[in-house]
């Protein structure tokens, strides 16, 4: 039996909105310590890693690990019926043929329940190793979203180069080139979440497809900051922390110079 009650149902909408352009179905792994999902897009160029820890739920019961295969597109349609202030409860049996979603309005004057069939999805066996990153950049998520959008107007690939001076985003296209350098501003009197911070043990520079980075920025509403992790010749990780709950992480394979 699995039952999880989330007071801020709007959070679930934001999480689903942050992945719906990348995957159409996914196996949610319900385990005693939380709800997680790991899935690659159809081209295997990007991977999504979601974790919603059990502590973030108002009530959480999970007797044993349950793979809950769901069609993301249908899930998004169904969750649209919930108000963003609704309390959402997710329930299913141990060998679930279907999952029930319960939406309770804030002042409890409207209760809706939806039942969705589960699907059997044979996952590739993914293993995302814990990685220490030689360059970690934490910056305002809205700024990163704006930057990726502006760069995509000019080129398809952005080269991200991190040194202790800061992060330089460069792109080239038919109309020309664009470079944006973001400098760390630790001294600034900005709030914590408006600062750009760079921790670096080794400079790193790599190229990534802007199309994917732009789809990752759909997670911007989840967190005021975004963290980029880079290691030479490895995929980049783009992480949006969900306060007191977990994270949505995206991994993107680099483009290799021919």
């Amino acid at each position: 039996m699995f039952e999880a009650r989330l007071l801020q149902g709007g959070l679930l909408k934001k999480v689903l909105d942050s992945i719906k352009d990348i995957i159409t179905e996914g196996n949610f792994d319900c385990s005693p310590n939380g709800l997680s999902l790991q899935a690659m897009d159809s081209s295997h160029v990007s991977l999504i890693d979601i974790l919603l820890e059990s502590e973030g739920f108002e009530h959480y019961r999970c007797d044993r690990n349950i793979p809950m295969g769901l069609n993301i597109t249908n899930l998004v349609k169904m969750i649209k019926c919930a108000g963003s202030e609704d309390i959402v409860t997710i329930k299913c049996e141990d060998k679930p043929d279907n999952v029930t979603f319960l939406f309770e309005s804030k002042d409890n004057d409207k209760i809706s329940d939806f039942e969705m069939k589960t699907m059997t999805i044979d996952d590739e066996h993914l293993l995302v190793p814990d990685q220490t990153y030689t360059a970690v950049v934490k910056m305002p998520s809205a700024e990163f979203q704006r930057l990726c959008r502006d760069m995509a107007a000019i080129g398809d690939t952005v080269n991200i180069s991190v040194t202790k001076e800061g992060v330089r985003f460069s792109t080239t296209g038919d109309m020309g080139t664009a470079n944006i350098t973001v400098r760390p501003n630790p001294s600034g009197d900005q709030k914590e979440e408006e600062r750009t911070e760079v921790q670096i043990t080794e400079p790193v520079s790599a190229g990534f497809a802007l199309r994917y980075l732009n789809s990752f920025t759909k997670a911007t509403p989840l967190s005021p900051t975004v963290t980029l992790g880079m290691v030479p010749n490895l995929p980049i990780v783009v992480e949006y922390k969900i306060a007191d709950m977990g994270h949505v992480r995206y991994y993107l394979a680099p483009k290799i110079e021919d």
Partner: peptide, 14 residues
């Protein structure tokens, strides 16, 4: 431009 790698090389647990 460079060519796009996939994540299979890095994350597929074969």
């Amino acid at each position: 431009e460079g060519s796009q790698e996939t994540l299979d090389f890095y994350f597929l647990d074969v």
